[in-house]
Design a protein around this nucleic acid. Structure first.
Length: 237
DNA sequence: AAACTTTGCAACCGCAGTCCC
DNA sequence: GGGGACTGCGGTTGCAAAGTT
């Protein structure tokens, strides 16, 4: 039976001294074998704990503080496409960690979506008794879904229900998701789990076109996109 | 002011994937 | 190819701070 890596080691919150030891060690030796790092750095912690502390808190390139609105929007979009793949989502938010994104989703965004009557798991309006017949009938494959609280409702020119709440407007826009993600089909093996790469790190054939995914009709459209400014995400299913 | 509740987030845990012998 | 070691990920927990009664 393998010994638990944390047996006999410190647990709980990190002290300033521990942070300094870890930071100094990694500055000198770089990130390496997390298993042996604690001993070499003089820490009574398991390697796993050191890795987590470094990645989520001590790394110098971490952006701390509140999430900007565009970051929040991007998280919603990426979550709609990728689900709970926090490390992938965080990979497209410079300076943010998967743990931070996950926490922000669970404590802010998820709650906000629920409050607005949107299922955070599938990003679609929940069927709420009382207004579902009137509201959900407006959803069609070619049209963004209509959702929201009746109290905030207003009538817009096309006769459908509209919103006066900024968050709702923004999220409604996000349903028309249109990410610049490169999508590659099909999987080399149907039984294999999805694979992906960022910036083409894995050696798989990529499509030359950029496929744009539209949540409204669940379709990919392809068109050439020039001047790409952020990492290319490739999904293999 | 005290008690209680809610919120935010750091840290832990277990599992799955990958590597290496 | 099998199995152990290691790493990384996502779910969950625990606790301090903030808010409410």
């Amino acid at each position: 039976m393998r010994k638990p890596c944390c047996e006999g080691k410190n647990k709980g919150a990190w002290t300033k001294q521990e942070d300094e030891k870890l930071t100094n060690y990694i500055r000198t030796h770089g990130e390496g074998c997390w298993r042996t790092l604690p001993k070499e750095a003089g820490l009574q912690r398991c390697g796993k704990s050191c890795r987590l502390r470094w990645i989520n808190y001590l790394r110098p390139d971490i952006k701390r503080g509140n999430f900007a609105q565009d970051e929040e929007d991007l998280i919603v979009k990426l979550h709609a496409l990728l689900g709970n793949r926090w490390s992938l989502i965080a990979g497209r938010l410079p300076g943010r960690t998967d743990n931070e994104v996950k926490n922000y989703w669970n404590s802010h965004i998820r709650r906000k979506l629920i409050k607005m009557g949107i299922d955070p798991n599938n990003h679609r309006p929940k069927t709420i008794p009382g207004f579902q017949n009137r509201r959900l009938e407006t959803i069609s494959p070619s049209k963004p879904p209509i959702y929201g609280d009746d109290d905030d409702e207003q009538v817009v020119s096309d006769g459908t229900s509209g919103f006066i709440n900024d968050d709702e407007k923004r999220l409604r826009t996000n349903c028309d998701i249109n990410l610049d993600l490169t999508i590659a089909f099909p999987s080399p093996s149907p039984s294999s789990s999805p694979k992906y790469s960022i910036n083409g790190e894995i050696k798989k054939k990529e499509l030359t076109n950029k496929s744009q995914y539209n949540m409204n009709n669940n379709k990919f459209s392809t068109k050439e996109v020039e001047g790409e400014s952020f990492p290319t995400l490739v999904l293999f299913r």
